[in-house]
């Protein structure tokens, strides 16, 4: 498990293409969301509050970079078989589930590193520009609770999805899924977006970090949206529930991936 973690991390972190794609995506993010990304204020007047600024920064950063994250992970699990490395690994006495978990942790950590860099980099810039060092203190819990659980789930999905289809097809579907299930308004069409199954950290933002509280905005069911039963009113408990859902989904997907491999082995 440690072996897979260490080497999968190493191989992914030093892939130039990863840094290039993230660089381009980051440039696109800055270009398309410039006013919001500059002020870290999504209309709720929180741009000068370091806590809310970090919450908004997390939202803006994830909105685009999560796509890159998913797409860069898509070939990582299946390439063992494609490269012909899987055979000798399967012939070793190492536990296959341990290997899968190690690979997942290592490669996801490496692929999440540029996101962390962008997010914490923005926090440093904010702290200096606004003269508010508390932003740095807030950035850590915001990253851990609003970004990481989503990445844990998306990582498992992106590793396992291509077991069922070619990675290119998966990437297209993943992008479509990201917009449909996470970004579009809930009343546009039946969607998972803004539910506790959405990978964006909105439940944490509203439930734990009080985003929207000044305007008296309550995050939860949308008027005239389908699937509202998946949209409880945000609260700290629901925020924790969302984190649990993300981690449980990740674990479930990895387990299914392992079962899938075990079935096709013999």
């Amino acid at each position: 498990m440690i072996a897979a973690l260490r080497y999968e991390f190493l191989m992914q972190i030093r892939r130039p293409v990863m840094w290039i794609v993230y660089g381009l995506a980051f440039a696109a993010l800055v270009a398309t969301m410039w006013p919001a990304y500059r002020t870290l204020d999504l209309g709720s007047g929180g741009g000068h509050d370091p806590k809310l600024a970090m919450v908004v920064s997390a939202k803006v950063t994830m909105s685009l970079l999560a796509i890159v994250y998913g797409c860069l992970l898509a070939d990582r699990l299946i390439r063992d078989r494609r490269l012909g490395v899987a055979t000798i690994m399967d012939a070793s006495s190492a536990n296959p589930l341990g290997r899968l978990i190690g690979k997942y942790a290592g490669v996801c950590a490496a692929t999440a590193a540029p996101i962390a860099l962008a997010f914490f980099g923005r926090a440093v810039v904010y702290a200096i520009a606004e003269g508010k060092a508390e932003a740095l203190a807030w950035s850590v819990p915001v990253f851990a609770t609003a970004i990481l659980p989503g990445l844990a789930f998306l990582g498992a999905l992106a590793l396992a999805g291509p077991l069922l289809m070619p990675p290119l097809v998966f990437r297209v579907l993943f992008v479509a899924y990201w917009f449909w299930g996470n970004l579009i308004p809930a009343d546009m069409m039946p969607t998972l977006s803004h539910t506790i199954f959405a990978a964006t950290g909105d439940y944490v933002a509203y439930g734990l970090f009080d985003r929207g509280s000044e305007g008296g905005f309550v995050y939860g069911p949308w008027p005239d949206a389908a699937l509202n039963f998946l949209r409880p009113v945000a609260s700290p408990a629901v925020a924790v529930l969302w984190m649990g859902v993300m981690v449980a989904l990740a674990a479930g997907i990895l387990l299914l991936a392992r079962l899938h491999a075990a079935r096709s082995e013999h």
Partner: peptide
Amino acid sequence: LGVYPDLTARQFLDYIALL
């Protein structure tokens, strides 16, 4: 047999040895 092209021989062997 396949290998990870982005590892050195020593690293690749180390990975397998750990497994």
